[in-house]
Design a protein around this nucleic acid. Structure first.
Lengths: 108, 108
DNA sequence: CCCCTTATTTAGCAATCACTAAATTAGTCT
DNA sequence: AGACTAATTTAGTGATTGCTAAATAAGGGG
């Protein structure tokens, strides 16, 4: 699947946005959405297959991070989208902030 | 429909490519593909609604041209795609050349 | 006015897609 | 080993989508 088709899906853009600057586990990512873990995992597979994210395994956890290089000119495009608030909920950014602070993952 | 979703469809990228630098009639565009006139017209509607093409009416003909400005950062992205041959058939470029030469439209 | 060309639109169809729920894999603990 | 957690995978479902074929609209010329 080509890159532009992959990021045409809003959910996948949201996922990329959440692991844009820092690693996040699959579970951490999934927790930010009102869809099942499985649904997010499927999106992660698409992103993986397209080479748009990198994965690092550590125990049972998978740490994902956006592969900005692989996105080429689409990376600045996405950043532009997010900077101008034209993409989805603003709450996503806040969710990312929260996740940053509780990074060790001992959330309630 | 947002721009990235519109250009996620290969056929629409091909259409944009054909009217990237010069105007082309809907019929001229449709003739380059192995799909019906109606199918291309539907794609043109999507491109129109997204503001990604401009239209000029002249008699019964509609002249379309890509709106590169509206594409913003996606315009260079598309040009990059085409420059590196990563997108669809190379024959499309040749078809565009032919159309240029027979511009008045008296083809067999 | 009829006919032809150009283009859009509509109804219907097959394929794709994002999702849920459940099954499965894999690693970590006691 | 068994139980628990993290993540992926599979089967199935409803919605979307790109297409065809046919209907419709609209301009131009005899």
């Amino acid at each position: 699947m080509d890159a532009v088709k992959v990021i045409a899906e809003p959910r996948r853009r949201d996922i990329l946005r959440l692991c844009w600057r820092a690693e996040r586990t699959a579970g951490d990512l999934a927790a930010q959405f009102n869809v099942t873990f499985g649904a997010v995992s499927q999106h992660l597979k698409v992103l993986r297959d397209a080479g748009l994210v990198t994965v690092r395994r550590e125990g049972t956890r998978r740490y994902y991070q956006a592969n900005r290089t692989a996105l080429g000119p689409l990376a600045p495009y996405l950043e532009g989208l997010w900077a101008t608030q034209l993409d989805t909920l603003a709450t996503l950014a806040e969710a990312a902030e929260r996740a940053d602070q509780t990074e060790t993952g001992d959330a309630p």
